[in-house]
Design a protein around this nucleic acid. Structure first.
Lengths: 101, 101
DNA sequence: AGGCTGTGTAAGCAACTTCTTACACAGACT
DNA sequence: AGTCTGTGTAAGAAGTTGCTTACACAGCCT
């Protein structure tokens, strides 16, 4: 989870995740989505994401295809949910007390 | 959201959030939970969390009381859910195809 | 007033991130 | 074989983070 949350802290990496969310995309294809940044920079981000278990990589001849791996976010989601649950408890209390939140 | 995800990327800050999850705690009280780290270090983490909207601060005489502010995680939760939804779609597809996941 | 107690802020340093450019190398195509 | 295409890796510069120690300062208590 540590790795996943650290990886997700970077906006470029989040954007990459959105890009590969709906299906495989090649490295170059992904890099084309960031014209302001060099291709190697994107490649390095892809490595961070892969190491964090947030994307899957597959070789296809010359190219490498990346796809989202949402399971990698499981622990992160767990943390957020654990924090959120306080909110839910508060809501319940509020409802019980029959007042506005 | 940027700030929140960046703030949450640090394990010390996550630990602090767990500490204040169930109710207000004073700065010193929180710092006592991290004997390996100086008090000012914890104070700086608290500032980051406050700036990111992840904790509320309240003065009580001498002390400052911190409490979790889960709403600060709303956007982060939104991102994770958006990523996670792919997983759900896959599940649905799997169910539709009547096979194992 | 004067001295604790609780806490934030400033300055500075070491470690880490995130880029960039230059290079390496495998796979496809003549 | 030779070369183009697609992609990763190495090295290094610049900025950022996360600590530490030293200091500042408000609020309580004689």
């Amino acid at each position: 989870m540590d790795d996943a949350l650290r990886a997700v802290a970077d906006p470029t990496r989040r954007a990459i995740m959105e890009l590969v969310r709906d299906g495989e995309r090649s490295a170059g294809d992904i890099a084309a989505g960031f014209p302001a940044m060099s291709r190697p920079a994107v490649s390095q981000h892809l490595k961070v994401l892969a190491d964090a278990g947030l994307v899957d990589v597959r070789r296809d001849g010359n190219r490498r295809l990346y796809a989202l791996r949402p399971e990698g976010l499981a622990d992160a989601a767990g943390f957020i949910e654990r924090m959120w649950s306080l909110q839910l408890r508060r809501l319940k209390k509020a409802v019980a007390a029959d007042r506005e939140v």
